[in-house]
């Protein structure tokens, strides 16, 4: 699906609303909806907290061991938590017919999708990143390492939402879609996991982490550009 050029989109929306309005419409709508059904947001957060808390209970309370494991554990838990929330990303819009209306709206579908994904990140990624210092302390990470952890989560979680949306769109309306979604999406999350948790580990080992952060940033930029396009193509197929 080709993104219309600036000239074309001016022609589409003569004198009136632009692409940013479309983006903001979906963003505000999804945030409002989330405020009305808060359980979805809290489910993700509690999953994150519980998954991380299980590790000290299972592995034993040796601080040194937990400290080495902490970045990986927190990152894997964040990854699973954000995947958990992906299955509901388009599901309700699909069921009540709103998705059809989005597909035939006079805006590029990818812009509407980007708005939805930004809302999804604010509702999952940001709370996860904000909660992670608490869990980091619980696992004995140093204050500086916790700061790095938060930065990597803030850079990495939007990538998870963006890549995950492609899988969510492809498995829409498929029976047993949830499992299929994780099979599709988890392998794609691997690079983000490696560089996300790798940055914290490297920092603790005293190695420069600029490379890790630049790569996470690059993932983010590439997925902001391509994921909404891929998702909108997948959505058109699912709606059909």
């Amino acid at each position: 699906m080709a993104e219309p050029t600036k000239h074309e989109s001016m022609k589409l929306c003569p004198k009136k609303l632009g692409l940013f309005t479309a983006f903001r419409l979906m963003l505000v709508r999804d945030l409002t909806l989330a405020m009305r059904r808060r359980t979805d947001v809290f489910t993700t957060l509690f999953f994150f907290i519980i998954a991380v808390t299980l590790f000290p209970l299972g592995v034993g309370p040796e601080m040194e061991l937990l400290r080495t494991m902490a970045p990986g554990v927190i990152w894997v838990a964040a990854l699973l938590a954000s995947m958990l929330s992906l299955s509901t990303l388009f599901a309700s819009d699909y069921e009540d017919g709103t998705l059809e209306q989005m597909v035939i709206a006079p805006y590029p579908l990818s812009v509407l999708v980007l708005g939805k994904l930004f809302a999804h990140w604010i509702l999952t990624g940001v709370p996860l990143a904000l909660l992670s210092p608490l869990l980091g302390m619980q696992l004995g990470l140093s204050t500086d390492a916790i700061q790095v952890l938060v930065i990597t989560l803030l850079l990495g979680t939007p990538v998870l939402s963006l890549i995950g949306s492609i899988g969510a769109a492809l498995t829409l309306g498929v029976r047993g879609g949830g499992v299929l979604l994780s099979l599709l999406v988890l392998p794609l999350f691997v690079p983000v996991l490696i560089f996300g948790s790798g940055a914290v580990e490297a920092f603790s080992a005293g190695i420069n982490i600029d490379g890790h952060l630049s790569l996470l940033g690059a993932f983010l930029i590439v997925s902001i550009v391509f994921a909404p396009l891929a998702t909108s193509v997948a959505l058109r197929i699912s709606v059909e």
Partner: peptide, 16 residues
């Protein structure tokens, strides 16, 4: 999108 501006579709689902 230019065509979508010209049509209004009302389906089985209410889209509300």
């Amino acid at each position: 999108e230019e065509y979508y501006q010209e049509i209004s579709y009302f389906g089985h689902l209410n889209a509300i």
